[in-house]
Design a binder for these strands. Sequence first.
DNA 1: CGCTGCGTTGACAGCATTCAATCGATGTGG
DNA 2: CCACATCGATTGAATGCTGTCAACGCAGCG
Lengths: 239, 239
Amino acid sequence: MPASENHGSDLNRCRQCPTRRVCIAAAANEDQLNRLPQHLRCIETVPSGHHLFYAGDSANAQYHVRSGMVKTYTINAQGDEYVTGFYLPGDIVGVVHSDNCHAESALALETASVCELNDEALVQLAEIGLTTALVKRLAVSANTAMRQQINLQHTSAQGRFAGFCMMFSARLSRLGRCPTHLPTPMSRTDIANYLGMTLESLSRVISKLQATKVVRAKRDHIEILKPETLKTLGLHVDY
Amino acid sequence: MPASENHGSDLNRCRQCPTRRVCIAAAANEDQLNRLPQHLRCIETVPSGHHLFYAGDSANAQYHVRSGMVKTYTINAQGDEYVTGFYLPGDIVGVVHSDNCHAESALALETASVCELNDEALVQLAEIGLTTALVKRLAVSANTAMRQQINLQHTSAQGRFAGFCMMFSARLSRLGRCPTHLPTPMSRTDIANYLGMTLESLSRVISKLQATKVVRAKRDHIEILKPETLKTLGLHVDY
DNA sequence: CGCTGCGTTGACAGCATTCAATCGATGTGG
DNA sequence: CCACATCGATTGAATGCTGTCAACGCAGCG
């Protein structure tokens, strides 16, 4: 339930957007930048704990995260929850759907703002010549997902956590944010679930890495103290 | 190194293609079907053991599999191989790239034929109004990847293999092929790698499932004898 | 016939899960 | 202000699964 909306009357919105350089708009020229806002409905505020959409909802839109953090997850018939991703500004949420239904639910972990990219907007994007940019962006998502999958499958609990931190760090870096300060508005349970291990295993891993002063973990953030050490613990993939 | 090529002079190619209903062409109308072949370069034969492309190659195209099976993988700086996917007719290979370079290598496990979808073709697809269809298709890929990731993370070796079989079966079913006969042109090592376990673990799992007559495994195919049992062993996700 | 590549089977050690107890922070009510 | 409940997180002990190392089986091939 968006608290405030903006139907895009402001033509300068995209030009002034802080996430512009990690958005499709990065590939847009002056003319395209002027026309972009007409095609994107902007949801200014999604309060923490609120859903962008639920699994099963009719999916005629994708969402481009502008600020905050979003968690996606699914719940199967048995009631088990599977956390499938944490999204930062610049990421696209909601691509994953079939039969015009969302396959995941998306929840704001902290107050977020997003741009809605509906099917109509897709066609319009194509008309103003941004199809390639869009496909490239989806490719980057797929690429990230692939690396995460590799990281999550082929190593120990400690390695998975190390890889998680390094990838998180790299993403923050790309956003121009501090790469050693990882905000964790999600619970340990969520992280453990995402990494395919139990809460206890994650807790042990973190304790061990704190004892060796590789990271310092608080409730709401993780601080990377020795990035080089962390890198050797994870898989040797490019982050 | 494609053995034979066809630059698309045959206007009926897409209309007569056996994979038409699992291709972007499924969403095409008569007019679009006529114009499609002009935009797609068709590589009729990729011999078994040959590469479609290598990681690092400049990536200005994606490939739509028409027949055969394709394996994708990456090799990191340490020389470790990671198998990232097995592709069947209707699947799109090569979406995963960034900086205009392929992130994976793609290898034909058996003689394959593919359609090349280059950047130019993407723009042309947009022009004839198939953007939404393309994005939807990419979404399905992402969807499949997500389910596989869930399957691979949250369960035991036996469960992962069971899930692998069920997903494979479901994909064959969608292609109108026999859902209980899974062709395995890839090695056990490849499957184990893909499932994030050792060759030995996979071997033990298969032996156990053969002993209980749930599956029958030969070198080049796996036969599902008790689909219901297999379903209970895997994660309860929709396949 | 022996070689080689690939897969199976066995023994053992190590790591992750499970179950259970404890701790700490937060919030509520007396 | 303190007692208490609650939720999330940490720690401990024991079981069980998976990786590792090694031996063996089997098919294809020169």
